[in-house]
């Protein structure tokens, strides 16, 4: 997704074709578009022509009593019928292609939860961004933790709802490197529009290197930077702001070391172990004026990642 929009980016029908499936979808899309333009000009053209040609000249002029014409009626039922069946079959063929996952696909588990995505790689890496090698099919086995979501990447032309209590599967094969947005397209509450994540298509070498460094979160990365990456990728950004404004959860600005009052009347200083329990068991202590909607990150973040987040909150709190 190139951030500098040129004029051609606004006035076009389809986003860039970044997956093998995209060309099929665009082919059918433009085929239907041409058909629509033809039929539309036929209908509106005939309408305008008749209105101009058969304007009422006097109040008494007679019109012929045409009750119908079987031949025309048959023609304009059969021809659209054939075209409709053609469109259906083309759509059906591509749909079957989208349904069959190639055998050697890279299997990534996708977890959707209220207002963020997390991707679990076969090697056990949990990342907030979907990093995939170019030219290799990727199979997404998706499930949600709370309400319905939907995994949609416009450039790959793929979309599938993510259901709690069931897996749904879809696949894609990126044809070009680049960065695209994953957007949630099934309404899921307050920050439904913030539930976006990045898809990074990289070359195979870069991908292997990314995997080897534990998903870009290797031990060499300083704690605060690792914390910042986690903050953006693991969905904290969707609810906790850095500039003091209330989104859904409390802001991180000026949080560390400050007295926090809770809904049950008790209070505590926001120090290291308070933040750790707040991450692992958020609904035990809820700050006044907020609702207990934060999902628990138990089993999602290892100790190093939690301390990285705490370092990041410290660095932001000044």
């Amino acid at each position: 997704m190139n951030t500098n929009e040129t004029q051609s980016d606004i006035w076009r029908w389809m986003p860039d074709q970044m997956s093998t499936f995209a060309s099929n979808v665009d082919g059918l899309f433009y085929f239907i578009l041409i058909l629509c333009v033809i039929f539309f000009t036929l209908i509106v053209g005939a309408m305008v022509y008749f209105v101009v040609k058969f304007r009422r000249r006097t109040d008494q002029d007679e019109t012929p009593l045409i009750k119908g014409n079987h031949t025309i009626e048959i023609i304009w039922s059969v021809i659209p019928g054939i075209l409709l069946i053609a469109i259906f079959t083309w759509g059906f063929v591509d749909w079957m292609k989208l349904g069959t996952v190639p055998p050697n696909a890279l299997d990534v588990r996708v977890e959707g939860y209220k207002w963020a995505w997390s991707f679990v790689y076969p090697e056990g890496i949990v990342s907030g961004e979907l990093v995939v090698p170019v030219g290799k099919p990727v199979k997404l086995t998706m499930s949600s933790k709370d309400v319905l979501h939907s995994f949609y990447v416009a450039e790959f032309r793929i979309k599938r709802d993510v259901l709690p209590g069931r897996y749904t599967v879809q696949w894609f094969e990126a044809t070009d490197t680049g960065e695209h947005w994953v957007q949630c397209t099934e309404y899921c509450g307050t920050s439904h529009s913030k539930m976006i994540a990045k898809v990074k298509v990289v070359s195979q070498e870069e991908y292997d290197e990314w995997i080897s460094t534990g998903g870009g979160m290797g031990d060499d990365v300083p704690l605060a930077d690792l914390g910042k990456m986690l903050y953006e990728q693991r969905g904290c950004v969707a609810c906790h702001s850095l500039d003091g404004s209330k989104v859904v959860g409390p802001t991180f600005k000026g949080l560390y070391g400050v007295e926090r009052k809770f809904t049950d009347g008790t209070s505590a200083v926001a120090d290291d172990n308070y933040l750790k329990t707040a991450i692992l068991a958020p609904n035990d202590t809820v700050v006044e004026g907020f609702s207990p909607v934060m999902p628990s990150f138990q089993g999602q973040l290892n100790d190093r990642q939690i301390s990285a987040l705490i370092e990041f909150i410290k660095s932001v709190s000044q």
Binding site: V25, L28, I32, F40, V44, W90, Y152, R157, K159, E186
Partner: peptide, 30 residues
């Protein structure tokens, strides 16, 4: 009535995009 014919034709014809299985994957809920 004339504007109905104009607008409903567009509305009806765009239903063809959403009825096709593969195109609907891209266009659904947009």
């Amino acid at each position: 009535a004339l504007s109905f014919l104009f607008l409903f034709s567009i509305g009806g014809l765009t239903g063809l995009f959403l009825g096709a299985l593969s195109v609907d994957v891209h266009l659904h809920d947009t």
